[in-house]
Write a protein that binds this DNA or RNA. Structure first.
Length: 955
RNA sequence: GCGGAUGUGGCGUAAUUGGCAGCCGCGUCAGACUUAGGAUCUGAUGUCGAAAGGCGUGGGGGUUCGAGUCCCUUCAUCCGCACCA
C-alpha cells in the first residue's frame, strides 16, 4: 500500500479529538509557552489557502515546544461580532447570530482538516454573552477609572474626587458632567468620522483615503455625542514601551507615527484690539523671530470673534465652505492653497510688531491648538501660503513675509534672502544657526529651542509642551451586531450598570436598520429592554476591536464565571510568548490590546504591561487570477499570446506616431492605458476560475461546463492549447482566484499542504499562491513514506546505523532546530528534503535514524509522523515524544575541500586535512601543479589561508 | 513629502552571517520504462562562448586578499502615514 494520506489523516485527527491530545492545564511542572494566532472573523466565504499560513507556523512552534517539554497554550477562537454579518442580515433578514454560527461551523471544519493542535476546550467567541459579559465588565472598569498624571497610572475615580475642589457643592448632574472629563470611558461631543451609507461612526484607522475600510463608502466629519476611550492618556507609555517588545520594526514605526509625539512649546499671541489671545503650538520656538502671520483653522472658536466687520462676509463664507467639504475633497485638494484674512492683528510677543491673522484650511482644528504661527522661511506649508498671498501680506505688515532666521550649516541659504530676494523653498531642517533673532542669534537650533522655551516660560508667554497626534478612541457604533455598552441614562446622566447586572444581553429587534428618526438599531428594542423597566440603555454598541482587545487573557481561563481571568491563570501564563498575525492590524488591534493591557495592569488585575513578548507578521498570500480573452461580445476566445502580441504591435506603432504630436505626453498616457490588454479594443479579458486552469492552460471542456453561456464557446488556440493570462490580485471570490485548503487537502493531504505553505518562502513575505510547486512536496511525502516501507511492507530494521547515516540525521537535527528557533520554516522544509534524498540514496532503513526523523518532522507533518510512530511500535501519540538532540560528535570532519582562489576568484578545490596548520596548507597548495599553472611563473604577492574556509592567492 | 520593507536564474527561493553565488523545489530539455501518461526513474539546466575562458546577486562608486552580505550614492517596486505646525 502506497502512502494513503486521506486514511492516515482522518485516523489521527479523530484520535487526537477522542484522546483530547492537546488539552492544556493551568498548572504544570513544565515551563509554560503561550503561542497565539490572531483569531479570525468568520466570514461567509470560508478559509482560503492564505488564512492558515500563520496558523501552520504557530502550530509547528506549538508542537515543537511540546516535544521540547513545554506546557503549551495554543488556543483558537472567533472574532464574531462585526459588520459583514450585519450587512448580510440587512439584506436577507437573517439574524447575524445564525449566519455567524453557520460560518463558525464551516471554519471549524476547515481548521480541523489541517490538523491543528489547538486546545478547543478554550475556544472563545466574542459574540457569546459569556464572553462579552467580561468585555462589558472591563468597560465599566474604564468608566470607573481616571488617569492620575502624578502617579502616571489609572486609578479608581474615588481617588479623584478629593482633588476636585467644591465637588460636593455641585448638583448630581454637574458632578456627573465634571467626572466625564476624567473617566477613561467617557461621553462627549466629538467630531467623528460619520459614514452615512453604513449608518455609523468609524475609528480613524477604519477610514482609508476618506472612504470606509469596509465597503468603501464616503465618510464625513460630524459632531456627535459619543463614547470614547481615553487612550491618549497612555500615549507616552504606549510609545516608550515599544522598546521593551520584540515586534517588527515596521509595526513599531507605524505605531510611533500613529502616536505622533512632538515636543515644542505653546505660545500666546495677544490681539491688538482686545484682550483675547491666540494660543499656538510650535515645535520650532527657535524661529519665533521669523513669524510673519498667524493662521487659524476654519473651525477655530476665535475666528468669528476677532474677524472685523469689513472681513466678516468673506470669512464666514470661507469657513462655511471649508466645513461643508467632505474629508475626501479636502484631501484631494491638499495642494490647493486657500485662505482669507480676518482683518485682525496680534502683537509679536517679543518685538511687539503687528502680525496679521488669517484663516486657512491647511491648519487642522484637531491638532495642537488649531492655530499656528507662520514662519514661511522655515516651514514649507507656511511658505506656500505666504507665496500665494504675498502681496496681501506685504500690504498688511509692510515687509517681506519671508524672514530668514536660521542659517544652514552648509550656508546654503546665506545671502539668498534677507533683502527681498526671493528664495525658492523654505529651509525646514532642524539644524543650523539662528540669525536676526535677538537673544537667540548665534545659537544652534537645538540650544535655541531650549533657550526660547525657557524665555517663553520665564516671561509667561507660554509653556513647553508635548503634543500627540493620537486621538482618543471613539467607542460607540450605531450598529446592531456588537456588544451593548453597559450604560443607562437616568435623568440625562450616564450611569454604568452594576457588575451583577451583567451581561447586558443584546436584545432582539425587528429590523437591523436605524429607526426612522436616525437612532441606532438598538432603539428598536421593545419597551421591555429598559433598566428597571424605565431607564433607557445606551443605544450604540461597541466597535469591532473591543472583544479582541483582551481575548488573549480569556483563553487562559475561559470557563471562569467569577472573573474575566483568574489571578492564578494569568500569573501562570503571563505574556503571549509568540503572537502571529497580519500586519494590517498595526495601528488598530495591536495598539488597543496594548492599551487595555496597560490599563488592566494599572488597576492591579494582571501582572504584565504588554500583551505579547514577540510578534511576527505573516505575509499575505495573494491570488493569481487567470484570464480568458473574449473577442467582441460573441463567444469566441483567443489564447493569451495571440492577443498579447497583437497589442504590443499596435501600441508600438501608435506610440511612435503620437510621440511627435504637440501634447504627446497626455496622448501617450492615454494610449498606454488603453493598450494594456485589460481594456484594449474589443477583446475583453474575463476572470476564469483558477481551478479549471492548470499551469496557464485552460481546461476547455471544464470551461464550457462552467457556465451555461459558454456551452458553445469557440477557441482560437496556440499549439493546440488555450493559454490564459495571469495577474496577481487579492484572493477573492469575485476574481475567481480563490484556492481552498479543502481542495488541496483532498488532492495532496493536509501534511503536504502544511509543508508546501511553509516551503513557499519566509513567513513574513507576501507572495502569490501558485499551486504548481506542490507536486515537489507531494513527491517528498511519498519518498519519506518509502524510507519506512517497501511496497506494502513496513521495513524498518533494528540494525545499527552507519556513520554516514548518523551524520545526515544529526546535521538535520541541528539545522531543523536552528530553523524553528529562528522561525525559518521554509528552509527547514528543504532541509527535510535534503535529508530524505540522502537517506534514500543510502537506502537507509534503520530505526536509529528513522525514529528520530519521525519526531523531527512531526511538528510540520503531524499525521504521517503519528502513523510512522505507531508503525514503529509506539502506543502513545508522538505529540510528547522527546525531541532528538544533535550530537556534534557525528558531525566532526577530518578534512575540508578548500576552494583555491586567485584574486578572490575560485579556480578549483583541493582537500586538505583539517589538522594541517595554515603554513602547511599554504606550502602544500603552492606545490600543486594546477596552482603552478595558474601562477604562470609569477611569484604571488600574498597567500591568504583561512583555516577551514578558503585559500586565496593574490597575484 | 516622511517612514518601513524588498530587489539574486524562466519562477518560488537558499547562502553556515565577509570566504566555492544559485541549495531545495517548480518549470524546461534529453533519455529510460511504458499500449498510454498530468505516473515513475536517470541526467542536464544562471548567462555569453564551439572551446579555452569571460560575465554575473537592480545601477554606479568605495572598503577588503576576498562583498549578495559592510559603507556611500542612485533607481525601481510594495506597504504604512501624510497640510500633525
Amino acid at each position: 500500500m502506497e502512502y494513503d494520506f486521506l486514511a492516515i489523516e482522518q485516523k489521527w485527527q479523530s484520535y487526537w479529538a477522542k484522546n483530547k491530545s492537546f488539552i492544556t492545564t493551568n498548572a504544570s511542572e513544565k515551563p509554560k509557552y503561550y503561542i497565539l494566532d490572531m483569531f479570525p472573523y468568520p466570514s461567509g466565504a470560508g478559509l482560503h489557502v492564505g488564512h492558515p499560513l500563520g496558523y501552520i507556523a504557530s502550530d509547528i512552534v506549538a508542537r515543537y515546544k511540546r516535544h521540547k517539554g513545554f506546557n503549551v497554550l495554543h488556543p483558537m477562537g472567533y472574532d464574531s461580532f462585526g459588520l459583514p454579518a450585519e450587512q448580510y442580515a440587512i439584506q436577507t433578514g437573517q439574524h447575524p447570530e445564525v449566519t455567524t454560527k453557520v460560518n463558525i461551523a464551516r471554519y471549524r471544519e476547515q481548521l480541523d482538516k489541517i490538523g491543528f493542535s489547538f486546545d478547543w476546550e478554550r475556544e472563545v467567541r466574542t459574540s457569546d454573552a459569556s464572553y462579552y459579559k467580561w468585555t462589558q465588565w472591563i468597560f465599566i472598569q474604564l468608566f470607573n477609572s481616571w488617569y492620575n498624571p502624578e502617579t502616571n497610572k489609572a486609578e479608581p475615580i474615588s481617588t479623584l474626587i478629593p482633588k476636585l475642589s467644591g465637588f460636593h457643592d455641585l448638583t448630581e448632574q454637574e458632578q456627573a458632567a465634571l467626572l466625564l472629563n476624567y473617566r477613561l470611558a467617557y461621553l462627549s461631543d466629538t467630531v467623528v468620522n460619520w459614514c452615512p451609507k453604513l449608518g455609523t461612526v468609524l475609528a480613524n484607522e477604519e477610514v482609508k483615503d476618506g472612504l470606509s475600510e469596509r465597503g468603501g463608502f464616503p465618510v464625513e466629519k460630524k459632531l456627535m455625542k459619543q463614547w470614547s476611550l481615553r487612550i491618549t492618556a497612555y500615549a507616552e507609555r504606549l510609545l516608550n514601551d515599544l522598546d521593551t517588545i520584540d515586534w517588527s520594526e515596521s509595526i513599531k514605526e507605524a505605531q510611533r507615527n500613529w502616536i505622533g509625539k512632538s515636543e515644542g512649546s505653546s505660545l500666546f499671541f495677544k490681539l491688538e484690539k482686545n484682550d483675547d489671545q491666540i494660543e499656538v503650538f510650535t515645535t520650532r520656538p527657535d524661529t519665533i523671530f521669523g513669524v510673519s502671520f498667524v493662521t487659524l483653522a476654519p473651525e477655530h472658536e476665535l475666528v468669528s470673534k476677532i474677524t472685523t466687520a469689513d472681513h466678516k462676509a468673506a470669512v464666514d463664507e470661507y469657513c462655511q465652505s471649508a466645513k461643508n467639504r467632505s474629508e475626501r475633497e479636502r484631501m484631494a485638494e491638499v495642494k490647493h492653497i486657500s485662505g482669507v484674512f480676518t482683518g485682525a492683528y496680534v502683537l509679536h510677543p517679543f518685538t511687539g510688531k503687528k502680525i496679521p491673522v488669517w484663516v486657512g484650511d491647511y491648519v487642522l482644528s484637531g491638532y495642537g491648538t488649531g492655530a499656528v504661527m507662520a514662519v514661511p522661511a522655515h516651514d514649507s506649508r507656511d511658505f506656500a501660503f505666504a507665496k500665494y498671498f504675498e502681496n496681501a501680506l506685504i500690504e498688511q505688515s509692510g515687509e517681506n513675509p519671508i524672514k530668514i532666521v536660521i542659517k544652514s550649516i552648509e550656508d546654503r541659504h546665506e545671502g539668498v534672502h534677507t533683502d527681498g530676494i526671493a528664495i525658492q523653498t523654505s529651509y525646514d531642517a532642524k539644524d543650523g544657526v539662528c540669525i536676526n533673532s535677538d537673544f537667540l542669534t548665534g545659537l544652534e537650533v537645538k540650544e535655541a529651542i531650549k533657550k526660547s522655551i525657557a524665555v517663553i516660560e520665564e516671561r509667561g508667554l507660554g509653556k513647553g509642551k508635548i503634543n500627540y497626534r493620537l486621538r482618543d478612541a471613539i467607542f460607540g457604533r450605531q450598529r446592531y451586531w456588537g456588544e451593548p455598552i453597559p450604560v443607562y441614562y437616568k435623568d440625562g446622566i450616564a450611569c454604568a450598570l452594576n457588575e451583577d447586572e451583567l451581561p447586558l444581553i443584546l436584545p432582539e429587534i425587528d429590523k437591523y436598520l436605524p429607526t426612522e428618526n436616525g437612532e441606532p438599531p438598538l432603539a428598536r428594542a421593545s419597551d421591555k429592554w429598559k433598566k428597571d423597566g424605565k431607564y433607557d440603555y445606551e443605544h450604540s454598541t461597541m466597535p469591532g476591536w473591543a472583544g479582541s482587545s483582551w481575548y488573549f487573557l480569556r483563553y487562559m481561563d475561559v470557563h471562569n464565571h467569577h472573573n474575566f481571568v483568574g489571578k492564578d491563570a494569568v500569573n501562570y501564563w503571563q505574556q503571549i510568548d509568540l503572537y502571529i498575525g497580519g500586519a494590517e492590524h498595526a495601528t488598530g488591534h495591536l495598539l488597543y490590546v496594548r492599551f487595555w493591557t496597560k490599563f488592566l495592569y494599572d488597576i492591579g488585575l494582571i501582572p504584565m504591561q504588554e500583551p505579547a513578548k514577540k510578534l511576527i507578521n505573516q505575509g499575505m498570500i495573494q491570488g493569481q487570477s487567470s484570464f480568458v480573452y473574449r473577442a467582441g461580445s460573441g463567444n469566441q476566445f483567443f489564447s493569451y499570446n495571440l492577443i498579447k502580441d497583437q497589442f504590443d504591435k499596435i501600441s508600438l506603432d501608435e506610440l511612435e506616431k503620437l510621440a511627435n504630436e504637440p501634447n504627446a505626453k497626455a496622448n501617450i498616457i492615454e494610449l498606454w492605458k488603453k493598450s494594456s490588454y485589460h481594456q484594449y479594443g474589443k477583446v475583453t479579458p474575463l476572470h476564469v476560475d483558477v481551478n479549471i486552469v492548470d499551469n496557464q492552460v485552460l481546461d476547455i471542456e471544464a470551461f464550457r461546463q462552467w457556465r451555461s453561456e459558454y456551452n458553445n464557446a469557440t477557441f482560437v488556440l496556440e499549439e493546440g492549447k488555450y493559454i490564459c493570462g495571469t495577474e496577481v490580485e487579492k484572493m477573492s471570490k469575485s476574481k475567481w482566484n480563490v484556492v481552498s485548503p479543502d481542495d488541496m487537502i483532498s488532492k495532496y493531504g493536509a501534511d503536504c499542504l502544511r509543508l508546501y505553505e511553509m516551503f513557499l518562502g519566509p513567513l513574513e513575505l507576501s507572495k502569490p499562491w501558485n499551486t504548481n510547486g506542490i507536486t515537489g512536496v507531494s513527491n517528498f511525502m511519498r519518498k519519506l513514506w518509502r524510507l519506512y516501507h517497501q511496497g506494502d511492507q513496513f521495513t524498518v530494521s533494528d540494525a545499527a546505523a552507519e556513520k554516514a547515516e548518523l551524520k545526515i540525521l544529526h546535521r538535520t537535527i541541528k539545522k531543523i532546530t536552528y530553523d524553528i528557533e529562528h522561525f525559518s520554516f521554509n528552509t527547514s522544509v528543504s532541509n527535510f528534503m535534503i535529508c530524505v534524498n540522502e537517506l534514500t540514496e543510502l537506502k537507509c532503513n534503520k530505526r536509529e535514524i528513522l525514529e528520530p526523523l519521525a519526531i523531527l518532522i512531526s511538528p510540520y507533518a503531524p499525521h504521517i509522523a503519528e502513523e510512522l510512530w505507531h508503525r514503529l511500535g509506539h502506543q502513545e501519540s508522538i505529540t510528547y515524544a522527546r525531541y532528538p538532540l544533535c550530537n556534534e560528535e557525528y558531525l566532526v570532519e577530518n578534512s575540508f575541500q578548500y576552494p583555491i582562489s586567485v584574486n578572490g576568484k575560485t579556480k578549483f578545490t583541493q582537500e586538505f586535512d583539517l589538522a594541517m596548520s595554515k603554513e602547511d596548507i599554504e606550502q602544500a597548495a603552492m606545490q600543486l601543479a594546477s596552482v603552478q599553472k595558474l601562477l604562470d611563473g609569477k611569484t604571488p604577492k600574498k597567500v591568504i589561508v583561512v583555516h577551514g574556509k578558503i585559500v586565496n592567492i593574490v597575484i
